[in-house]
Design a protein around this nucleic acid. Structure first.
Lengths: 205, 205
DNA sequence: CGGCTACTATGACAGCCGTCATAGACGTCA
DNA sequence: TGACGTCTATGACGGCTGTCATAGTAGCCG
């Protein structure tokens, strides 16, 4: 809500990401972005000569980097890191937002993918890079918890897929049910992968 | 691609769903829908006096019903139905499409949620109903496979969440990797829920 | 035949969009 | 002081959008 005191250019990228995740790419106008960032309209063509496409791509990139950084911060906040606990924190970020600020926004990367993947290829690539970076951050965290390297990326993909899908359902239903459900159902599976590499069945507690 | 020989009204709803899942709601114009359905433009205001919102809502409803019906058909196609096998078929539907027709389209319900959930409440409700119906169909199939009733809906939500998220990532990456990954990773968990109600760890093979 | 309903056809409208052209303000450096 | 680069300001343009108004056609019924 509050726009931090940063350089105008960065503010515009930030505002773009925020508006995109609420209204979608097509429904977000350049004029809206400038107004939301309290930046002059004329600066848009100055900072983003590539037009809307460039602005959207940078917003997507920003969101991807933000998601990756959050993973590192979640990791640092966990006294005894386990994959299930990390996933619970990732989900919690969304339930907290939805319960305190309403179901107004989704994931900007998802929004960009849904309505630009078929038309603007550079935006599709930006979204792909965002997912890749995010997945890499999660996979790195998993290996640090004892998950075998070859299982880290698949599990990270599963976590992000479930989270993105649950965000969608949560917004549609205006309920955090789907989010809490995927966290609860996936937690044991993730933790088992950290303790028992071969099958996750034997080592027990 | 080919528009079947149905009533013009139904053709328009069908075409709307197809265009929405490819370009998003905002980027899909009413004129495009009429052209794609080979229906006269003037019929739009005749069949859909509620305007674009009504058309979009019906397209979302159609997609939800379609997804639910597919579950029943998948179930009938399985000689020995297990939750993991059902999920594999649900995922396979998307990998098949992507590998044979390209990554042009996503899920219409997801598209509608992303760029109408915040503006048109009736569309958000239509999307919610679509997810609910779909989840109910999957949950019903799960209970028929021996999954305890209280676990059926959560697991169905997990399946649909993972699938939706994986579709998103697959489109962004132009690769079916995320789809095949969630199917492989989630399969054992789902099957365990069908055979071992209490924890899924002990009963073995 | 007239009358009615279902559907089609088309032009117009106001509004928003991204983009561009042009001009102005402001600081800095020579 | 004057010139220059950075940033701001604003009006205009063409194009597309959803919607409406109006008129037309086709077929059935009496």
């Amino acid at each position: 809500m509050a726009v931090p005191e940063r350089a105008p250019r960065e503010r515009m990228v930030f505002s773009a990401a925020q508006l995109i995740r609420r209204d979608g790419v097509s429904s977000t106008g350049m004029r809206d972005v400038a107004a939301h960032a309290r930046a002059p309209r004329g600066s848009l063509q100055h900072y983003f000569p590539g037009g809307k496409e460039q602005l959207v791509n940078e917003a997507v990139g920003w969101a991807g980097r933000y998601a990756g950084d959050r993973v590192a911060r979640f990791l640092a906040a966990l006294p005894e890191p386990t994959p299930g606990a990390l996933f619970a924190l990732m989900v919690r970020q969304w339930t907290d937002e939805y319960e305190s600020h309403g179901f107004g926004g989704g994931c900007p990367v998802a929004a960009a993918t849904v309505d630009r993947a078929g038309s603007a290829d550079s935006t599709r690539e930006a979204a792909s890079a965002a997912f890749t970076g995010w997945t890499g951050a999660v996979a790195g965290a998993l290996t640090g918890m004892g998950v075998p390297v070859e299982r880290a990326t698949p599990l990270a993909t599963l976590m992000i897929s479930s989270l993105e899908g649950a965000i969608l359902i949560a917004r549609a239903e205006r309920s955090v049910r789907a989010l809490t459900t995927v966290a609860r159902e996936l937690g044991p599976l993730l933790d088992a992968a950290a303790s028992g590499p071969d099958s996750g069945r034997g080592t027990g507690e």
